[in-house]
Design a protein around this nucleic acid. Structure first.
Lengths: 221, 221
DNA sequence: TCTTCATTCTAACAATCATTATATTGTTTT
DNA sequence: AAAACAATATAATGATTGTTAGAATGAAGA
């Protein structure tokens, strides 16, 4: 028979298993990517900049912690977050890290070349401006990710296509770019590019996870 | 010069550091204890059932992740959570673990000898009943923890003192006991003891962290 | 100085990591 | 159907890191 004390130890062990899953930088990066929608191992490996078998090993750890699920489609295996609560936990972890670790805040500040291009409005104000058409919100992630979920009133404008599609963007309005979240560099690149072409471009750090974790709703499809 | 890619890796590394802090069962137990209020290393070691140098080592890891702070008072060094966001993160981690790991739910169910003594009301209903005096809420943690923070309308009735203080408890009303949280065994013991004496006793799994994380307010002092 | 509380150091052991090589599984071709 | 192929998964490796217990060191108070 298992004593209460042993059960208590077991219970903490299980929670620690989730903690362990969140204790590797690469796994956190994979989770951030998965928060954008389901992806195959190959895509995840490419986007995280690691090789396939390493990605597979990390994904196995995440699967054993039940943070992700899989689905087979032909040769490919698609991974996805097993629930929305997982992305909320990731956001919570990141926010707590940001709150407590100065080095993290410093590194994040260094990642933004032009801090003056960061928007300062609250999410609600931004949403209202977008609704009224006073600003144009562009989603610079790949189209597939946009199609799964995106911010209200956002227009899909993948970083890879921006230069060919400059004509679609207004020159008299402020443009706000966003991407996968505060650690993603896509919107940073978009700001550099559109800024060089003379647009009024700013960026926001939220991705869909952060937006949703703040209690705001997304658009799908 | 550090490239953007290196900064990105650094940033994930820092978040993973928080994850690492949360990846050991003993550290999670220490955090749960600290969520009740500040405690010295010796007290923490005793309550977690480990020796001082091990407690000290784990606390060092938590301190390096900036999840806890210290304060010296004479010979003693008191540790405390560095912010309320830390206990919220712990609750979030535990809830996500509970949601995803069946083994955890099973173990938790086994920890409760009499599942029928678990209350089923929502927090709001319980609060209202306590306000009206329809039930008596008892806090079975040590008095020091009660004094730092406790649930509204709760009465301090440490497990160690219950048997001497039976006369203070009503026999015609439902009594609801709570302790440090869902993994704590104090309220379970209180139910066994008061049940044996013929009281209408139930327990709730919330501790002060869970209560507060649910957006409800606590009483202090 | 002696006692108590806490930390640090050390060393053994266990767990985790990235890498390389090999195996599995399902698809396509013949 | 068998063979070749592509996408993942697993196994084995050495390097690194984490855990733990014991002994030694610090720091404060009596």
């Amino acid at each position: 028979m298992t004593t209460k004390q042993e059960l208590k130890a077991l219970v903490y062990e299980k929670v620690a298993q989730i903690g362990k899953a969140l204790s590797s930088p690469k796994r956190l990066e994979l989770l951030d990517l998965l928060a954008q929608g389901e992806k195959s191992v190959e895509i995840l490996a490419n986007e995280a900049g690691i090789d396939k078998q390493l990605a597979s090993a990390h994904l196995k750890a995440l699967r054993e912690a039940r943070l992700v699920n899989t689905r087979r489609e032909g040769k490919y295996i698609f991974y996805r977050l097993s629930a929305q609560s997982v992305s909320r936990l990731c956001v919570n972890l990141r926010e707590t890290a940001e709150e407590h670790l100065v080095e993290l805040r410093d590194a994040l500040a260094q990642m933004t070349s032009q801090p003056e291009t960061l928007i300062s409005e609250t999410r609600e104000v931004l949403l209202e401006k977008a609704r009224k058409g006073e600003i144009v919100v562009i989603d610079v992630r790949p189209t597939t990710e946009f199609n799964i979920a995106h911010l209200p009133y956002a227009r899909s404008m993948p970083l890879t296509e921006i230069e060919q599609r400059l004509a679609e963007l207004p020159r008299d309005k402020e443009i706000v770019a966003y991407c996968r979240g505060p650690f993603c560099l896509l919107s940073e690149d978009a700001v550099a590019m559109l800024g060089a072409h003379g647009f009024h471009i700013k960026r926001m750090l939220d991705g869909v996870s952060e937006w949703e974790a703040a209690g705001l709703s997304l658009e799908h499809g």
